[in-house]
Amino acid sequence: MSSTANLLELKGVHTHIGAYHILHGVNLAIPKGQLTMLLGRNGAGKTTTLRTIMGLWQASQGSIHFNGRDITRLHTPQIAGLNIAYVPENMGIFADLTVKENLLLAARKASNAAQMDAARLQWIFRLFPAVEKFWNHPAGKLSGGQKQMVAVARAIIEPRDLLIVDEPSKGLAPAIINNMIEAFDQLKKSGVTILLVEQNIHFAKRLGDTVAVMDNGRVVHAGSMAALAADEALQQSLLGLSL
Rank of each mutant, 00 (worst) to 15 (best):
M37A: 04
T52C: 14
Q235V: 00
N179G: 12
V165H: 01
G55W: 09
A173E: 08
A5K: 10
A222Y: 11
T36N: 02
L97K: 11
A130E: 12
N179M: 11
L239A: 05
D117T: 01
Q236H: 09
G144L: 15
F134D: 01
P129L: 11
A222F: 04
M54N: 10
H137E: 12
A106Y: 09
I17L: 14
R154A: 13
V213P: 08
M116D: 10
I93Y: 06
A5W: 03
A233N: 10
G12W: 03
T48Y: 03
Q235F: 00
L97W: 07
K147W: 09
N102C: 13
L56T: 07
S111M: 06
N112T: 10
R69A: 08
A118G: 10
E182L: 14
G145I: 03
E9V: 00
L7D: 11
M180S: 05
Q148R: 15
T36A: 03
I157V: 15
L238W: 14
T76M: 10
V87Q: 06
G43A: 01
G55M: 13
E232V: 01
N136D: 13
G12S: 06
L238C: 07
R69H: 15
G217K: 11
G25N: 12
A119M: 04
F203L: 12
Q148C: 08
H202W: 02
G40K: 02
K205Y: 05
A44G: 14
G68T: 07
A153H: 07
T52S: 13
R154P: 10
V131R: 12
A44I: 14
M91A: 08
V13Q: 01
G33M: 15
S60Y: 07
G18Q: 04
L35A: 04
K11H: 06
N200P: 00
D209R: 09
H16W: 09
S190T: 03
A44E: 13
A226W: 06
A106H: 05
Q115V: 06
T76A: 15
K32P: 00
L35C: 11
R73Q: 15
G191N: 11
W57K: 11
P88D: 06
L207G: 10
L207T: 08
R160C: 03
E101C: 05
S242V: 15
E132H: 14
F128S: 06
Q199W: 09
V192E: 06
A212Q: 12
V150H: 05
F203E: 12
Q78V: 04
T47M: 02
K188S: 02
D231K: 14
H221R: 03
P174D: 00
D161I: 00
Y86V: 12
K189H: 12
L50C: 10
I71D: 10
G171E: 13
S60C: 10
T47A: 03
Q115R: 09
T47Q: 12
P174A: 09
A173D: 01
L39G: 00
Q58E: 15
G25H: 11
T47H: 12
L163E: 05
E232H: 15
H65I: 00
L195E: 02
G81N: 15
I93F: 06
